[in-house]
Design a protein around this nucleic acid. Sequence first.
DNA 1: ATTTAATATCGTAATATTACGATATTAAAT
DNA 2: ATTTAATATCGTAATATTACGATATTAAAT
Lengths: 107, 107
Amino acid sequence: MGVSKLEIYPQYVNDIAQIAKVFSHPARVAIMQYISTQESCICNDIVEEIGLSQSTISQHLKVINNAGLLKGTFEGKSVCYCIDIERFEMFQKIVDTFFNRTKQNCC
Amino acid sequence: MGVSKLEIYPQYVNDIAQIAKVFSHPARVAIMQYISTQESCICNDIVEEIGLSQSTISQHLKVINNAGLLKGTFEGKSVCYCIDIERFEMFQKIVDTFFNRTKQNCC
DNA sequence: ATTTAATATCGTAATATTACGATATTAAAT
DNA sequence: ATTTAATATCGTAATATTACGATATTAAAT
């Protein structure tokens, strides 16, 4: 069918899958990485840095943003994107807990 | 186009995306989780546990296996799957390093 | 008010993913 | 040798993702 059956999994399993999905495309990994190296970040810089079209970058930024990982402020004509560190750390903790729990139980 | 342009990213960026992809589907998260709770694991149990068809589970197991996360031994008619803990810990380390590096640099 | 630059959105084509039933394969049990 | 049970693979339909060009939107600069 092509649709994931989300309703058959416990919440925390879906949470982990959703977090992983954000980082499952190299463009999004690269964007996160790049934003983190900037004082503050302007989308146009990202386009040049990554090498995809402006509209594609904008789409990827939307996915990252929808996951709650960005804080954007408008500075003049351009948007300054920043990583929402608290949210990012929350993701790290959830992922790390999953790894540790799985490791621990394992045969 | 629909194809990710893998050649424009550094290796480690593609690595992280590929690791994340394994966990980007809840079925695969649930399978890893479930395998970890068993002494050793038989696919048929997984089918009953997760609630997808046998062929779908088999497909997801293949994805997990292709990532190098499983060690399988044949026990009679059934396959006993085990998590390759060393590989799993390697993934954990790579992911954790990404989180930490990104956090550290950030504005 | 008009222009300009940055970013978002729309429409669309190409490809990937998910799911399942049907069938193939495999090895033990009879 | 045949049956049985477990798992893998094939074929296919439905949907999601990726990418891009064209266009819309927005706010500052003129």
